[in-house]
Design a protein around this nucleic acid. Sequence first.
DNA 1: TATCCACAGGAAATCAGGGTGT
DNA 2: ACACCCTGATTTCCTGTGGATA
Length: 432
Amino acid sequence: MLTNKDNFNIDDFYKKYINGPQIFKKREALEPSFVPYELPHRDNEIEQIAGKTACSLRGGVPSHFLIYGKTGTGKTATVRFVSQKLAQYSEERKPWWIYINCSIVSTPYRILAHIYNTIVGSEQIPPTGLPKDVIFKKLLGLLDYKIKNSVCFFVLDEIDLITDSKQGNEILYDLTRLDENLELCKTCLIGISNKVKFKENLDPRVISSLGEEHITFPVYNAQELRDILESRAHIAFQEDTISEGVIGLCAALAAEEHGDARKALQLLRKAGEIAEKNHHKTVTGDHARKAKQELERDHIIDYIKGMPLQAQLVLTAIYLISKFGKDRIIVSGDIYEVHSELTNMIPGISTLTRRRISDYINELHSADIISAEKKSMGYYGRTKVLQLNIELKFLETILRDIEKVKDVLNYKPILIQNNKVRISNSTFRRLG
DNA sequence: TATCCACAGGAAATCAGGGTGT
DNA sequence: ACACCCTGATTTCCTGTGGATA
């Protein structure tokens, strides 16, 4: 990271950069959004999706279906790939494909607005304000008017993110029933999920129209990952810039964690960037290993910096307890207390309830920043015992960058100051 | 063995902040 | 100005629970 601390000269930097070795030819080819001309090891899945959607070429209506598979198994890329091919073969009845990433477009209103705005090509529906049913009616009119005699595919990526709420199920139900209210246009819903068991909290009515047919994407093994990297590297890098074995190494590193192709590609890109930054002519195994470390760090940093302030304060509370309470066991009650102390010290920040803190703890847990284990202390109640999963020093550097947090990083929480006894329970004494 | 602690975590309600059309 | 809409964050209310202790 470049800061303006010593003598960084931006002119020199750019000159050096321009004259330095050129590694990339087409960096975008390593981005997740890139749709390649060929998809290695996905013939089977391509065939299945093509099979399910082909009837649209002859005016038929494909039935809704689901796609399962872990992250980085090529689900989205394959759908995009098939959709592009399909478009080549449909001259009169050009189908529409509308992609909705439920992690971004996450509410019923916004899903409807997104579909509408995508079709008209401008932001006609404002981000909020209108009643849902009004948009729904407008959308029906639009579909019939604009997509006459053709099929509109809705691809809901990360669909599992909306199915745990009542309204999420509502909107899915509405979308699967669109056709009943349409005269000329037909629709097909494709749900993509990386959780296999997400059907559990799916409305039975939705399952019956969406969940009966599905396609499952298996994870890639190391050899398959290698093939994928090989073909992308060919597009992305200049000739002879990748040294022997780098591709295999990236594939192997990514295969360690369930064969995630997105990660493998990221790794390769990062390795290239590291080489480029250091003005090396070729990408080496060292670059790849370094890339792995940096990616992990970057991910944690981005995640923490992107959290809401209250969540950052919860993490800070955990940080302070770990820092000052050597060997002390961290339980949720302690976090609540320390968090309350912190919010009282920082102006403009409200104190939260236990319930809310509990949710934030869960979020940190599922982000793997902390580990948490439910534990019973018998007569002394039940709680969660937590532990930081990242290094204290590293966490400190991240927290230091957060404006409202950095001033409290040396605060010694009260419950640690009078270490000997906990007032309302003896959890500490018993466990410590 | 009944009790009781210190929470976990689900469901629904509330609030504030961004909007709408009339 | 007014009545109403949607959302995200949070609170309120609540039921459930493992196991040491009385």
